[in-house]
């Protein structure tokens, strides 16, 4: 095998194609690096920082860092797990996440990450921000209370749908998901079938009139932790 890059993740040898990121190479090798904003079909963004690993001792986001020959990557260490736990907790307290009556519960990647990391309650105080709900669109609900600013919808609309429905406005704690219209989502060209609607990891963008079509208890992360698919595929190949 020429033209491939060799490096290690937690001591395990991994091979990557040139141009692949650490995260992509890890996925292919069956090593799950926790992540939230990264999405297979979208260009990496590097916002949530949950996938932060150590590369030759220095922190890097695995989703944006290209793999390079001889890299020593640490991912599943107590130190990194602790940083990731804190980042996930920050995302919880920053918004208004009401898991117990959110339609996304069980399919939500933020919730699933919390379960995987054994987070029952965040150690940080809830910030209880005032955020707008935009229910103007006939088929899609936009509830900014649950937005984690991952930019998946922003990217999917541009990169997969060929539109520009979403973008961020404001900065810092006031950074907000906004829509390409003077007022609201109904004024954009968003279609309910757009990929931008599917990729939301949380319950911020929801299809209307589809509540609980899959009952709680039979949802994606009700049965196994997030990342299991990647690990299972790796185990199958390794066997």
């Amino acid at each position: 095998m020429s033209e491939t890059i060799g490096f290690t993740i937690d001591g395990r040898p991994v091979r990557a194609r040139p141009g692949q990121t650490i995260l992509e190479a890890a996925d292919a090798a069956g090593i799950y690096i926790p992540r939230l904003c990264a999405h297979r079909e979208l260009h990496p963004f590097g916002a949530c920082r949950v996938c932060t690993v150590k590369v030759n001792g220095r922190p890097q986001a695995a989703c944006t860092m290209p793999a390079a020959e001889g890299m020593v990557v640490e991912s599943n260490t107590p130190e990194l797990t602790e940083h990731r736990r804190r980042l996930i907790e920050m995302l919880f307290v920053e918004g208004n996440h009401y898991c117990m009556f959110c339609e996304k519960s069980g399919n939500c990647e933020l919730q699933a990450l919390a379960y995987r990391f054994g987070i029952t309650a965040p150690r940080y105080p809830y910030l209880f921000p005032n955020r707008d709900v935009d229910a103007s669109h006939p088929d899609v609900l936009l509830d900014r209370n649950r937005c984690v600013l991952c930019a998946r919808c922003v990217r999917a609309s541009q990169q997969l749908d060929g539109k520009n429905v979403f973008q961020f406005v404001g900065r810092g704690a006031n950074k907000t998901l906004w829509v390409n219209a003077e007022r609201e989502l109904a004024d954009t060209n968003l279609d309910v079938r757009d990929r931008a609607v599917d990729v939301c990891p949380v319950g911020c963008i929801l299809r209307k009139r589809q509540g609980y079509t899959i009952p709680i208890g039979r949802r994606r992360y009700d049965h196994e932790p997030i990342g299991s698919d990647i690990e299972r595929a790796g185990a199958a190949r390794g066997a």
């Binding site: 590097g46 949530c48 307290v93 404001g170 006031n174």
Partner: peptide
Amino acid sequence: FADESCGYCTPCRVGNVLLLR
């Protein structure tokens, strides 16, 4: 810092607010 954070990444956007609190 909380005012001037661009808000792109979680630790800076949320962490500085929590430190301030």
